[in-house]
């Protein structure tokens, strides 16, 4: 388990079957749901080294998801996981930059927002 023991709430745990290679890992992501689960799954599926990626919400009253990655064997699942998070974050940064540029342009051409 990757989570710090003791008082700190776990953020991320990695679960693997005994004897499984490091290409197959279930990441337990705490305090997450479809919001990150589905968008991150899309990003990781875009990686040609990934064979399978999917997630489940364990139970409606538990605030965590089981996020499963199986790679084709050339890279460890952790690397695909890390790459997906990085790609998603970069995409968001571009969405944010574009959004702010368009909003500023709109405000300049329309004047300040009115009632």
């Amino acid at each position: 388990s990757m989570a710090a023991e003791g008082e700190k709430k776990p953020v991320l745990e990695m679960v693997q079957a005994d004897g499984a290679d490091d290409g197959c890992v279930t990441f337990v992501m705490h305090e997450e749901d479809h919001t990150l689960g589905n968008s991150l799954r899309y990003m990781i599926m875009k990686n040609p080294e990934v064979d399978f990626c999917g997630y489940t919400i364990t139970h409606p009253s538990e605030t965590k998801i089981n996020f499963r990655i199986q790679t084709r064997g050339n890279i460890p699942a952790t690397e695909a996981f890390r790459q997906g998070l990085t790609d998603l974050s970069e995409a968001c940064q571009h969405v944010l930059n574009t959004f702010q540029a368009r909003v500023n342009e709109f405000k300049e051409t329309q004047g300040q927002p009115t009632e």
């Binding site: 953020v11 991320l12 992501m29 996981f81 998070l85 990085t86 968001c92 944010l96 959004f99 927002p113």
Partner: peptide, 28 residues
């Protein structure tokens, strides 16, 4: 908050979700 600020905040929330797990990976 004005609606454009809300949208910008929402995008940043998704980025910070990614960052939360990236830093967890780094620390482990």
């Amino acid at each position: 908050l004005p609606p454009d600020v809300l949208v910008a905040e929402a995008i940043q929330v998704l980025m910070s979700k990614c960052q939360r797990f990236l830093s967890e990976l780094d620390s482990s």
